[in-house]
Amino acid sequence: MPDAPTTARVRAKAERRDALLSEAARLFAGHGFDGVSIEDLGSSVGVSGPAVYRHFPSKQAVLAALLVGVSEGLLDGGRAVVETSADAATALRRLIRFHVDFALRDPDVIRVQDRSLAALAPQDREAVRDLQRRYVELWVDVLARLSPATDRAELRLRAQATFGLLNSTPHSARSVTPTRTRALLEEMALAALTGPATRAPTR
């Protein structure tokens, strides 16, 4: 069993790493990946720039930890939602609530992904995209249980469009209370995912 000082050091290191990732999201969202230096990042948590390298080998590694980490969290969290839901309808409502929680809690991470995904190393960029594809398919699987006659491509389009809605709206919702914002987002997402599609007449 580790002694108390060792445990405290491990905990402090983990907390500092988490703080660096949180500040990286804020700084990258506000200034862009290229507009933030390692010194800026270290200063934001009260350490020198070189001290950041005790946690990450490079600024690009910070970005990778941020974006791969959030994608892993969404996939793992989404799986837990589905696995603990009694039926597909419950799973869908809980998935929507889960993603709304993310969008409202981490808008800076969403901005960073939108603007800086291309700055990742190729293998990290592909890891993020693979995790995102699997997250989308998790939703599509639930939608397919609710609407088995609907083509998966259409269900996938609905899911991806819904992510666009949920991920973009919190940026412009400052004039609406958080409680009302959450309710509106959940209502609109459910309508987008389950409402009837209107087909244009063929000519």
Rank of each mutant, 00 (worst) to 15 (best):
P196R: 10
D18H: 15
R79Q: 12
G46D: 01
T6K: 12
L185P: 01
A159L: 04
A64D: 00
V52A: 03
A25R: 01
R156P: 05
A103N: 01
V10Q: 15
V45G: 00
T84V: 09
G35T: 04
V100W: 00
S43H: 09
R93Y: 09
R182Q: 11
D18W: 10
F163E: 11
V140A: 03
V81K: 01
V140Q: 06
L74S: 09
P178E: 09
V82P: 02
P107E: 02
R152I: 07
T194I: 10
L166G: 01
V136K: 03
V136S: 13
E154S: 15
I38C: 08
L20Q: 05
G30N: 09
R111M: 10
R11T: 14
T202R: 07
A24D: 03
L165F: 08
E15N: 12
L21A: 00
V140K: 01
V82S: 01
E15F: 06
Q123D: 12
A86C: 14
T169H: 08
P170V: 10
S43R: 14
T181Y: 05
V176P: 06
Y135P: 09
M1W: 07
Y53R: 10
K59M: 04
D130M: 14
R145A: 12
L184Y: 10
T162G: 01
R156L: 14
A121K: 10
R26S: 11
D141F: 00
G30I: 11
A144F: 13
P57E: 04
G32V: 06
P5K: 01
